[in-house]
Lab assay of single mutants.
Amino acid sequence: SGEEFIAMYTYESSEQGDLTFQQGDVILVTKKDGDWWTGTVGDKAGVFPSNYVRLKD
């Protein structure tokens, strides 16, 4: 389980282990570690910068 966040911006990365997503995607955040959080979008999982998302209303 985790908290749902909304992507405010598209995040694209070629780094292994990074979670890429489109603006407006719902991200289920499973771990918060400083500026880099872990989460899932659909069947993808990985880390992403926390300043790209906001808490879902």
Score class of each variant (00 low, 15 high):
34 G>V: 02
41 V>A: 14
32 K>A: 02
47 V>S: 14
44 K>C: 04
47 V>Y: 05
17 G>D: 07
4 E>Y: 08
35 D>I: 11
45 A>K: 05
1 S>A: 07
47 V>H: 12
44 K>S: 08
7 A>P: 00
36 W>C: 06
39 G>Y: 01
52 Y>A: 06
27 I>T: 03
7 A>I: 02
28 L>N: 10
33 D>T: 11
53 V>G: 02
24 G>D: 12
30 T>L: 07
40 T>A: 14
54 R>G: 08
48 F>Y: 02
29 V>P: 04
24 G>S: 05
25 D>K: 00
5 F>P: 01
38 T>F: 13
3 E>H: 05
29 V>M: 00
37 W>F: 12
10 T>Y: 09
4 E>I: 11
44 K>V: 06
43 D>I: 09
12 E>T: 10
22 Q>P: 01
33 D>S: 09
12 E>P: 06
20 T>Q: 09
2 G>W: 07
2 G>D: 09
30 T>I: 09
36 W>F: 08
52 Y>F: 15
12 E>C: 11
8 M>S: 12
27 I>L: 07
12 E>R: 09
56 K>G: 10
31 K>D: 14
6 I>H: 04
10 T>P: 12
2 G>F: 15
22 Q>N: 15
20 T>Y: 07
46 G>P: 00
37 W>A: 03
1 S>Y: 09
2 G>E: 09
36 W>H: 06
8 M>R: 12
17 G>W: 03
6 I>N: 05
18 D>R: 14
11 Y>D: 02
51 N>T: 13
21 F>G: 03
25 D>I: 00
22 Q>E: 07
18 D>I: 12
22 Q>H: 12
28 L>R: 14
5 F>L: 04
15 E>C: 09
1 S>N: 15
19 L>I: 08
17 G>V: 05
57 D>T: 15
57 D>P: 10
51 N>H: 06
34 G>F: 06
22 Q>M: 12
23 Q>R: 13
15 E>P: 04
29 V>H: 02
13 S>C: 04
22 Q>A: 11
4 E>P: 05
41 V>D: 15
56 K>M: 15
24 G>R: 02
2 G>N: 15
50 S>E: 01
33 D>I: 07
21 F>L: 03
26 V>W: 01
8 M>F: 02
11 Y>W: 09
54 R>E: 14
4 E>L: 10
28 L>C: 11
48 F>G: 01
20 T>E: 12
11 Y>T: 03
30 T>H: 15
17 G>L: 06
25 D>H: 00
13 S>H: 02
29 V>L: 00
56 K>T: 11
53 V>F: 00
45 A>P: 01
50 S>D: 03
43 D>E: 10
16 Q>H: 14
39 G>T: 00
24 G>W: 01
19 L>Q: 03
4 E>N: 05
33 D>M: 11
41 V>G: 04
38 T>K: 05
3 E>R: 06
51 N>F: 07
25 D>F: 00
55 L>I: 10
37 W>D: 03
18 D>P: 02
56 K>C: 14
39 G>P: 00
49 P>R: 04
3 E>N: 11
46 G>A: 01
53 V>N: 01
32 K>N: 09
2 G>L: 06
11 Y>K: 03
37 W>Q: 03
2 G>V: 08
7 A>R: 00
55 L>E: 10
7 A>N: 03
20 T>H: 10
46 G>R: 02
51 N>Q: 06
52 Y>R: 09
34 G>M: 02
57 D>G: 14
50 S>K: 06
42 G>F: 05
43 D>G: 09
46 G>C: 04
54 R>M: 10
16 Q>S: 13
24 G>F: 08
12 E>H: 15
53 V>Y: 02
52 Y>K: 04
2 G>M: 07
33 D>L: 08
16 Q>T: 13
14 S>A: 10
17 G>C: 12
55 L>Q: 14
51 N>L: 07
19 L>H: 01
39 G>A: 02
48 F>M: 02
51 N>C: 09
29 V>I: 05
54 R>L: 07
17 G>Y: 05
22 Q>Y: 04
23 Q>M: 09
8 M>L: 11
50 S>C: 10
38 T>S: 08
17 G>F: 02
35 D>R: 09
32 K>S: 06
35 D>K: 15
34 G>I: 15
40 T>Q: 14
34 G>L: 05
53 V>A: 06
57 D>I: 06
40 T>D: 02
25 D>W: 01
51 N>W: 08
14 S>R: 13
45 A>V: 14
21 F>Y: 01
38 T>A: 11
33 D>P: 02
45 A>S: 15
44 K>T: 03
8 M>H: 05
6 I>G: 04
36 W>Q: 13
13 S>K: 05
26 V>Q: 10
56 K>A: 07
39 G>C: 03
45 A>N: 15
51 N>I: 05
42 G>T: 02
3 E>Q: 11
24 G>P: 00
46 G>D: 00
22 Q>C: 11
3 E>C: 07
42 G>E: 08
14 S>Y: 10
1 S>C: 09
42 G>H: 12
24 G>H: 06
3 E>V: 11
32 K>C: 11
5 F>N: 04
33 D>G: 05
38 T>I: 02
19 L>D: 00
10 T>C: 04
6 I>Q: 10
2 G>Y: 09
38 T>R: 11
41 V>M: 13
21 F>K: 04
20 T>M: 08
28 L>M: 11
33 D>F: 06
47 V>K: 15
47 V>M: 10
17 G>A: 09
22 Q>T: 10
43 D>H: 14
6 I>V: 13
48 F>P: 06
20 T>I: 07
2 G>K: 15
31 K>W: 03
3 E>F: 09
48 F>V: 00
13 S>V: 01
23 Q>N: 05
30 T>C: 07
52 Y>G: 00
16 Q>F: 06
13 S>T: 08
20 T>G: 08
55 L>H: 09
10 T>D: 11
20 T>C: 13
31 K>N: 15
8 M>A: 13
32 K>T: 11
57 D>Q: 15
43 D>Y: 06
26 V>R: 12
11 Y>F: 12
56 K>P: 12
42 G>K: 04
12 E>I: 12
12 E>S: 13
35 D>L: 11
35 D>Y: 08
52 Y>M: 09
47 V>W: 08
51 N>A: 12
1 S>V: 11
2 G>H: 15
41 V>E: 02
8 M>N: 06
26 V>A: 11
40 T>K: 14
18 D>Y: 14
28 L>T: 11
53 V>K: 00
30 T>E: 05
14 S>P: 09
24 G>N: 06
56 K>V: 07
22 Q>F: 10
5 F>W: 11
43 D>K: 13
41 V>C: 06
51 N>V: 12
31 K>P: 11
56 K>N: 10
39 G>W: 00
13 S>M: 01
19 L>A: 01
8 M>C: 08
25 D>C: 02
10 T>Q: 08
56 K>W: 08
31 K>E: 14
53 V>R: 01
13 S>G: 13
5 F>I: 07
14 S>E: 12
32 K>F: 04
8 M>I: 06
28 L>G: 05
30 T>K: 06
21 F>T: 01
57 D>S: 12
15 E>W: 08
29 V>N: 05
8 M>D: 07
44 K>N: 03
17 G>E: 14
15 E>A: 14
49 P>V: 00
32 K>P: 07
30 T>Y: 05
7 A>H: 01
24 G>T: 02
20 T>D: 07
39 G>I: 00
30 T>S: 06
29 V>R: 02
30 T>N: 12
50 S>L: 01
38 T>N: 12
21 F>E: 01
56 K>F: 09
27 I>A: 02
22 Q>G: 08
54 R>F: 01
14 S>N: 14
42 G>M: 05
36 W>A: 10
22 Q>R: 13
27 I>F: 00
27 I>N: 07
